[in-house]
Design a protein around this nucleic acid. Sequence first.
DNA 1: TAAGTGCGTCGTT
DNA 2: AACGACGCACTTA
Length: 177
Amino acid sequence: MKDMNAAVQTKNWNWTLPIQTRDGEFLAHYSSKGLCGLDFPDEEARDKVRAYAVNIPSEVQRWHQQTTKALENALAGRLVTELPPLDLSGGTDFQRRVWRVLKGIGCGRTLSYGEVADEVGDRKAVRAVGRACGANPIPVLIPCHRVLASKQKIGGFSGGLDWKRKLLAREGILLLE
DNA sequence: TAAGTGCGTCGTT
DNA sequence: AACGACGCACTTA
């Protein structure tokens, strides 16, 4: 109990709801401002859901519908049309600027870490961009998997490279390696 | 040409 | 003060 409350406070999660997909059960986290986190399927985390998923405001339920739909589309490699409001207040200024760029990368398109750094305004901040990508709290919907290393190399992925490869493949993106 | 090494540079811890 | 989801120049074989 105490552990859960601590997690809620530090992470600013008010509600956590599951999303069943063909790839497993994702967990979506919401604050009063919107979607603030999305976790890849993880057996260990499943048990906690039941404890969180009580007294869900109708607004959050509506957001969750949108998240669910968006995730279905994203996992199918289709264009994501509508997203719920995102609460990215947990990020730093720099991270939010990076995440904004990521949201602008269309389905089936990619940018390199260097190109993202360009967009953010400092060509030399390449490694910092990599770190910011890794800190993305809403993977898949904020498509950090569309950021590759130079020369179409895979680069890294905090959720595991298998996920990155899978997501890219479904959008028809070719990797070099 | 492919694979490996070194180092600059920036935000975060 | 140290560490990356990088990138580039520069070795080697």
